[in-house]
Simulated scan of single mutants.
Amino acid sequence: MRLSPRLKYISELVSDGKKIADIGTDHGYIPISLLLDKKISFAILSDINRGPLNNAKKEVTKNNVQNYVDLRLGSGMETLRDGEVDQVIIAGMGGILIFEIIEKKIELSKKLDKLILQPMQAPEELRKYLLKNGFKIIDEHFVREEHRIYEIIEAVFDEEFLSEYQGDEYSEKKTYTQYIYSLFENNSDKLIYTNPYYENIKKKINHIVKNHILKMVNRNDKTVNDNVFDENIIERKAIEENIIKEKTIERNILERNEIAENTIEKNLENEISKLYFEVSKLMIAKRDKLFEEFLEKKIYECESIVLKMTGINVKDLDDTTFETHNENVKSKVEQVVIRKIILDLLKYDIK
């Protein structure tokens, strides 16, 4: 059986010899293919609608695998009983619907060897749910099908991980934030924008980042030298010297600017928090061949949002843009620009 690239990639993540359930199975292509390849011994094909399940039944009969499947009509994983399967596939649905399906059978989900999840939208909401509820994301993947890049998540419940997450919810996020800050330290001067608005915001972020690092140096905080991501972080002595030289000039720039530093800092923190769930540390560490294209798509989304809000292309954006717009629009554009700058730095860093 020939599968589409997306379905083929998902099927390859199923472990050999396992019993699986395919939730929202539609035509049942993944489990049937796995049975034909003798990779699995048994599969439950479940769907909430009778039409797709009838399609799956036809495919099962056509491929003569009736003795190795069970077709079930019902919602989500509510068709499953404890111990029936080892791994569950939930693909082709929105991220919110996927986590709602898991939540309704949370205890069963915790006992599985693995969840293989492929959200069509809102993957960041799915990641938030998984982490909050103790499901450790063990791997993430990109796969291209036609003009779209899909994200696939492998997750497993981990009691120890749940305790760590609930004990210090933001420990990993702090490391992630430090990585983003290191990008500004190491690469910001290499990222040149043609319009002054972008350059102005970038300079303000640099000022915030340097002050943050200086505080950490003064506290002798070891997390500054965390080398999970920031292998090329500037030496502490150099940071202090640069800040001493630039502090007065940059402070004057900030005082003259309409946007307060604390607003920039808050927006920076908010955008990093969002990206923590959208561009995960696993994605960054793996440097998947589709990762750059994935970032480009997000950058394009930022540019489109700015155009939609202001009617102006990003390359023509400047402070005079907001003379005819209210403060709410100005604040929203600032957030999007901060997000775009971070994404630009991520893209630069992986090249």
Rank of each mutant, 00 (worst) to 15 (best):
L131D: 06
K136V: 02
I137G: 08
D139T: 09
E140A: 08
V143Y: 10
V143W: 06
V143T: 12
V143H: 10
R144A: 12
R144C: 10
R144Y: 08
E146K: 15
Y150G: 08
I152G: 06
E154M: 10
A155F: 08
A155S: 13
V156S: 05
V156E: 03
V156K: 13
F157R: 00
D158L: 04
E160A: 11
S163D: 03
S163E: 07
Y165P: 00
Q166A: 06
G167M: 10
G167H: 10
D168H: 11
E169K: 13
Y170T: 08
S171V: 02
S171I: 04
S171W: 01
S171Y: 02
E172K: 10
E172W: 02
E172I: 01
K173H: 05
K174A: 02
T175K: 07
Q178W: 05
Y181C: 01
S182Y: 00
S182Q: 01
E185H: 07
E185R: 09
N187W: 11
L191D: 00
I192V: 15
I192G: 03
T194C: 07
N195A: 10
N195C: 06
Y197Q: 03
E199M: 12
I201F: 14
I201R: 13
K203M: 13
K203G: 06
K204Y: 04
N206Q: 13
H207P: 01
V209I: 11
N211W: 00
H212Y: 05
I213F: 09
L214Q: 04
V217T: 11
V217W: 07
N218P: 01
N220Y: 07
N220V: 11
D221I: 07
V224E: 00
V224I: 15
D226F: 03
V228D: 08
F229T: 03
E231P: 04
N232Y: 14
I234L: 05
E235V: 14
K237V: 13
A238V: 05
I239L: 08
E241H: 11
E241Y: 13
N242K: 12
I243P: 01
